[in-house]
Design a protein around this nucleic acid. Structure first.
Lengths: 258, 258
DNA sequence: CCCGAAAAGTAGTCAACACAACTCAGAACG
DNA sequence: CGTTCTGAGTTGTGTTGACTACTTTTCGGG
């Protein structure tokens, strides 16, 4: 137990541990606040704060007159796991792999410059990779970075580690991302690299990632083989999440109201 | 101002109003807690609770030594708006429409019974509809309901109002849903009803909705024309949401760890 | 004029108390 | 035996007070 972390964070982590370990079973009532207070020797504040955090993640629900119940025992995928294909695959017990198709520096087109919020013709770094799960192609990824950020990647060992690891080593850390999901027909490059028939349906996820200051770090276009990967979202009346259905407009990928 | 609602809810609503009205601009610093306390005449608790709610929705970020800043001014889509095609379309200024292809009662197959958590061969209600935006086909929806729930729909005026309105009238209210998103090729029915070429990519959203007690109300398979509609999700390191990338397995749609 | 240190202001954390609203089990009643 | 009602237990809400950690501003020295 980290003694330096705030109390409510320690309590939260302990509760997560208990849910994961099965000490608190799915559907069980969580111990009453009073007993938690007695057990941890704190006041009610931190206990309620920890419970509120669990509630915000959908791990527990209900309450008011009765102790809340454990709703979900599977943890929400962390931001890092969701962003990094490599880390995600390893978490699931797959062997991640990749094949770099292209890693180049070139000037931005107008559309790309707008998305990355650069001046037109600014240099960018483009990386196209096939991502593999247990050796089988699962996704074609086309990532674009401002040159100042992407230059760390041109020299890196892309076939080995994850791009996000390489970027983190250079002090570039994404903390926020927007994903737009739709479907698209396989084009020649995907036909060749993913081994699908021309026109096959692919799941496309376009991503815009920023750092803590709101600077755009990356824009990407990932095309998944729907037979290998899909996406799941949970939703509830009490627990609203930034998930929206959109009518398609000519306007490109962008954060809301920016 | 609703005098009966809890204080922190009233404060939350007032803050949302100010963000929406532009009184608090994107990027602005929110007034300090002290000034909010002075203005609203409450103690620090409710103010912090309201701010925490905004933070949980990603509307404000930062803090610690400095007042938090407004991050997003566009509100998160409500659960109702996200669930109801009709309500969503109207919110966006489109004229929603629909054409009922089929509304029938029949016994559940084994797979459907499992998804709806019914005994095999239990009666179910199946409704297939084309949904229109401004008169143009946008989505083909195939919904399945346990007969006890779906029977309210067979007699309802489906061409007029929303299914969710009809269900709400019968006391059936979805409060939780899981969506699995992938891509699929257009089959003959979609070719005919959506007017696309055979094999065209469609965005498929499979949905499992439950009521407050966890009873499954509906399972659905929505196939969107990607040229008309897509989905957007926002994500951040501090604000985790129940969004997961999944490896495709034979197992069907289901809530995590259930 | 610039720079660094001190001071003032801010949010984060924690405690202790009080009351309200709600749930549930068991007692009392018909 | 079934129903209703009461009361204990629980969480939701709000208050007050105190301290810590961090940021911004201010001010003085160089």
């Amino acid at each position: 137990m980290t003694s330096s972390a705030p109390l409510h964070v320690q309590l939260y982590e302990e509760m997560i541990r208990r849910i994961r370990s099965g000490a608190w079973q799915q559907g069980d009532k969580v111990p009453s606040e009073k007993s938690l207070i007695a057990e941890f020797g704190t006041s009610r504040g931190p206990v309620r704060q920890a419970l509120a955090a669990l509630r915000a993640e959908g791990m527990i629900v209900g309450g008011r007159g009765t102790p809340p119940r454990v709703q979900r025992t599977a943890p929400v995928q962390s931001f890092d796991t969701f962003m990094s294909f490599t880390e995600w695959a390893r978490d699931l017990g797959f062997v991640p792999g990749q094949r770099v198709i292209e890693a180049s520096r070139r000037p931005a087109t107008e559309r790309i410059a707008t998305e990355l919020r650069l001046a037109p013709d600014s240099p960018i770094v483009e990386i196209i990779r096939v991502r593999l799960l247990d050796g089988k192609p699962a996704m074609l990824e086309r990532s674009l970075y401002p040159y100042e950020i992407g230059r760390h990647l041109l020299s890196a060992d892309l076939d080995g580690g994850s791009i996000y690891q390489a970027l983190a080593g250079a002090g570039v850390v994404p903390v926020r991302a927007r994903h737009v999901i739709d479907a698209i027909a396989a084009h020649p490059l995907e036909v060749e690299q993913l081994g699908v028939a021309p026109g096959s349906p692919l799941l496309r996820v376009r991503r815009l990632a920023t750092n803590e200051f709101g600077t755009v770090i990356e824009t990407a276009d990932d095309r998944y083989l729907p037979s290998m990967t899909n996406f799941a979202v949970e939703n509830s009346a009490e627990h609203r999440i930034p998930l929206t259905r959109q009518a398609v407009t000519p306007a490109p990928l962008a954060f809301a109201s920016e």
